[in-house]
Simulated assay, not measured.
Amino acid sequence: MRGYSATDHVMMARALRLAERGAWTTRPNPMVGCVLAHGDEVVGEGWHVRPGGPHAEIIAIEAAGERARGATAYVSLEPCAHTGRTGPCADALVAAGVARVVAAMRDPFPQVDGSGFDRLRAAGIEIVHGLMETQAQALNRGYVSRLVRGRPWLRVKLAMSLDGHTAMESGESKWISGEAARMDVMRWRARSGALLTGSGTVMADDPQLTVRLDGPAEFSPPLRVVLDPGLATVARGRVREGEAPTLYVHAANAKPPRDFASERVAVPADGNALDLAAVLRVLADRGINEVQVEAGATLAGAFLRAGLVDEVLLYVAPVLLGTQARPLFSGLQIQDMTQRMAMRLEESVSVGGDLRLRLYPVCEVAADAGAAAFAGAAGQEA
């Protein structure tokens, strides 16, 4: 077990907080923070803001100037060692004369994956990594998932009453949760690479699936994804309006209208049921790290049955809807207690008058998939 000082822990925690500032702007790149310090004195720091812009290490080096020489660099992810839209951060750290690099985790991106550490060691720089690795992996769980599993991290957002329902029998659902919870959802949308819904939700609720935040805020509009096997909704709905891009995913035999201008892609289907794993592979190929599903009980249940749900973002409102209202998930076909799906409570937070729960499925399929996602470490893509 490596020994880390109290200062090492303080500085790495600072680097992780810096990294998180890029949550709404860095995708498809991961969030990265860097702190340069002499002992407990910070001489430079920075975070990666957006793709194509300077990486966290470069910003920290420029802030430190000559004081970077002999400093310890605390980085939340392994410094890159390749040239993409920017140069290798490992070379920049060598040129700056840092004496030691402490990294939270290794980068599974094929063009890095340990080569950043190797380049630094070859230059005589002391390298240690693994400090606060769990926190770093959680920060970039979508990036890790895309590289290691070949699919994005999938989060299902739901709002329910105290008696476990999401809508009235008629489908009416506005609004179960309060205004504070709805604004909180916008912040989760802002960090998502894609917002996914089904054709049924488009027809019933006509959602915009856009990020609407109070005051000025910088973010990259998430891709709106509509699962529509027969392209039945392409001529309707606010999901096609505004600047955010929209992608329709359909079955191969669907026939789009002649004037259909939106982007679309076909995936395998069994009748009206699209291959959901194939949908996620399509999104991974587009560089999507995190997908937020905002749909009804049928599609939410289908993702859960397929073992593809990594996280449930659940808002619980202090209201009752009665026995005829609609459930959270449909189609689970649980007959007895031995078939129940367990959830691990990751977080419980009051949001206005509602309660926000973050839950991780721990059923066998989801648990195996989740373990694979973090078998490696996360890193930096140029």
Rank of each mutant, 00 (worst) to 15 (best):
G301E: 08
G301D: 10
I127D: 12
A19R: 09
Q137C: 10
E172R: 15
T197G: 09
S220V: 10
P222G: 03
D336K: 05
E218F: 00
A122W: 07
G150V: 02
L357N: 02
L332H: 13
S145M: 00
L299N: 11
P108A: 08
A13H: 13
A325L: 09
H38M: 14
P51R: 12
G97W: 04
A37Q: 06
V211E: 08
D107M: 03
N140F: 01
V102Q: 12
P88A: 12
A306T: 12
S5A: 08
G271C: 04
S220F: 00
T233E: 06
G352D: 01
I288M: 04
L283T: 11
A6R: 13
E57N: 07
A138D: 14
L209S: 13
A136V: 12
H48S: 14
T246Q: 00
I58F: 03
A373M: 07
P222I: 00
E45T: 08
P245W: 01
G39I: 13
R85H: 08
I176T: 05
V102R: 14
L16I: 10
W175M: 11
L120K: 13
G171R: 14
T338D: 13
P268Q: 05
A252D: 10
G200F: 08
G116F: 03
S161K: 08
Y248C: 00
A373K: 04
W47I: 01
G46A: 09
A180H: 00
E126I: 04
I176S: 03
R17Q: 14
L299M: 09
V309I: 10
T26W: 10
A96V: 10
V102L: 12
E179K: 04
R281A: 08
V98T: 08
A138M: 11
R121A: 14
A204H: 15
A167S: 14
G70I: 13
G84P: 12
P361V: 11
P222T: 02
A99R: 15
K157Y: 10
G97P: 04
G39C: 12
D259M: 03
V291P: 07
C80M: 08
G97T: 06
E243V: 03
L313F: 04
